Simulated assay, not measured.
Amino acid sequence: MEREFFGKVEDNAANSLQELKEICDQWENKIKQLFYSNYGDLPYLLNVKVDKRLFRALVQYWNLAYNCFIFGKVDLVPTVEEYTTLLRCRRIQVDKAYLRVVNFLTFLKKLMSITGMNEQWVAAQIKQKGDSKYITWKNLRDLILAHLDVKKKVDIFTFSIYGLVISPRH
């Protein structure tokens, strides 16, 4: 049962990532340049070949409360260099800071800011699963394809990468 569930999740994520790649490939150079200038090396994550067995093994040792790996009595927090080695992603520039900006706005306000859509539209798209709130890939994809504001299109695309690659939960 668990194997079937994880297989379905992986298939859905793979399909969504493939759609992200296809969208990016269709963009004209002007949009790609905006993307790279605003978000640096993030697009390279779309092409990283992930060793699923390695990540399944690492997940067993990840401590969500402390955001680190725990091996026996040893806590381990990998450096950016170690992550790039694990991911076999040589193009990430280690001289750039990758961090999460602390922002006290609600998820609704964040989505309004990222998408450029009004509160009613965003509120209608937000779903909840357990303690987490999210917006579906389908809604984000449709916005990327239809949004008239190129900067917002790039921002939504980037938000999708973060949701599908960096912190997938649903």
Rank of each mutant, 00 (worst) to 15 (best):
T106K: 09
I70Y: 00
G116D: 09
E81T: 09
G7W: 15
V165P: 00
T106F: 12
W27M: 14
L64I: 10
Y134P: 05
N12R: 12
K151A: 13
V101R: 10
I31R: 10
Q33L: 13
N15E: 14
K109P: 07
K133A: 03
I144C: 04
E19Q: 12
Y44N: 00
D51T: 13
N15L: 15
K109V: 15
R56V: 01
I161P: 01
A57P: 00
R169F: 13
N47I: 00
V80T: 02
M112S: 03
Q93T: 14
Y162W: 12
K127R: 13
K153N: 01
S167C: 12
L34S: 02
V102N: 08
F104W: 04
N38L: 11
Q125Y: 00
L87N: 06
E2W: 09
V77I: 11
Y83T: 04
N29Y: 03
R100F: 15
L42D: 01
Y134M: 06
Q128W: 02
L42F: 06
A13N: 11
W62E: 00
Q93I: 14
I156A: 03
V48E: 01
H170S: 05
V74N: 05
K30V: 15
A13W: 00
A65V: 09
T79Q: 05
G72H: 07
A57I: 07
E119Y: 08
N29P: 14
G40A: 09
T85K: 13
P168Y: 12
D75E: 09
N63W: 08
F5Y: 13
V50P: 02
T136M: 08
Y66Q: 12
C68W: 03
V122S: 00
A14L: 10
T79K: 09
A57S: 07
V80S: 02
E81S: 12
R53W: 15
C89H: 06
H170Y: 11
N15Q: 14
K32G: 02
L148G: 12
T158H: 10
L140F: 11
G72E: 08
L105F: 06
W62D: 01
W137Y: 15
N47W: 07
C24V: 05
N118A: 02
T79H: 08
V9H: 03
N139L: 10
L99P: 02
L111F: 15
F159A: 12
T136E: 09
C68R: 04
N12H: 14
N12Q: 14
R141F: 15
Y162N: 08
L111T: 01
R53I: 12
N118W: 00
S37G: 00
A14W: 06
N38V: 02
K8A: 14
A97V: 13
K110F: 07
Y134C: 04
R169V: 10
T84L: 08
K21L: 13
Q60W: 04
S167K: 10
Q60E: 04
F104G: 05
